[in-house]
Amino acid sequence: MMRTLLVRGMLAGLIAGVLATLFAYFFGEPSINAAIGIEEAGAAAHSHTHDPAPPAAHDHGAAAEPEEELVSRDVQSTLGLLVAVGVYGTAIGGLFSLAFAFVYGRVGKLRPRLTAAALGAFAFAVVFFVPFLKYPGNPPAVGKAETIGERTGLYFGFVALSLIVAVLAVVLRGRLTAKFGAWTAGLLGIGGYVVVMAVCAWLMPIIDEVGGDFPASTLWTFRVSSIGTQLVLWTVLGLTFGALAERVFAKKAVAVA
């Protein structure tokens, strides 16, 4: 059963990754291309200002050729994007199936399809959306190269913190259900998670490296498309895996009968 769910999860993750890639290509790539154009224009202006070309009389060799890209931008935005998001979706799908196997029948009494949908919504909020509110993604030309390690560490640290607090909130909800009922206990669990994460977000360092001259519309479009890509990924993963898991449990019920 577990192996079957794992395979179904990876398949659902692959499907979700492909659809998320299509969304990212049509809605996210235009803002990335615009940001790359801004970055290249800024680099060119900086070069002309601080590093003027030597006089032509001193040029005894051929003109310097621009450094060739190892992977072209066209490949990065198509095949590269598909491979990256596809692999990510497949891996996430496998982890999603393990989480489903753990919570199914233990947290609530929902059918497999509804359990997977609820788990997908939970994962989107806890793994992506809440950390994104604190440390939103930035397009090219935004951020300093020397701080990328710090920014990456803070982001993944906040993701881990969000997961831990969310699990504790689910445990709290389970312990309060008998006393207050499922609805009230659920609200208390959600409220506790929101309060703790708000305090953590307030205490953790703030990183804002967006220059005042960077177009707000490009930044907005990039971040909205990032949210949309993740929303497509987790929604499709939850719904697709739920449908596949429903069939697995239906076949098991028929076999037992």
Rank of each mutant, 00 (worst) to 15 (best):
M1H: 04
M10P: 03
L11A: 11
L11W: 04
A12T: 05
G13R: 05
A16I: 03
G17K: 11
L22I: 04
F27G: 01
N33V: 01
I38A: 01
I38G: 02
E39P: 07
A43D: 08
A44D: 15
T49C: 00
P54T: 06
R73Y: 10
T78L: 13
G80N: 09
L81Q: 13
V85W: 14
Y88P: 00
A91P: 00
F96I: 04
S97M: 04
R106V: 14
L110R: 12
R111I: 02
L114C: 02
A116P: 05
F129W: 06
V130P: 07
Y135Q: 08
E146G: 02
Y155F: 15
F156H: 06
V165W: 05
V167S: 12
L168M: 13
G181Y: 05
L187N: 06
L188F: 13
G191Y: 10
M197P: 11
W202T: 04
E209Q: 15
G211L: 03
G212E: 12
F214M: 02
L219T: 08
I227P: 10
T229R: 15
L231N: 05
V232H: 02
L233W: 12
L239T: 10
G242K: 04
L244A: 08
L244H: 01
A250W: 03
K252G: 00
A257S: 12
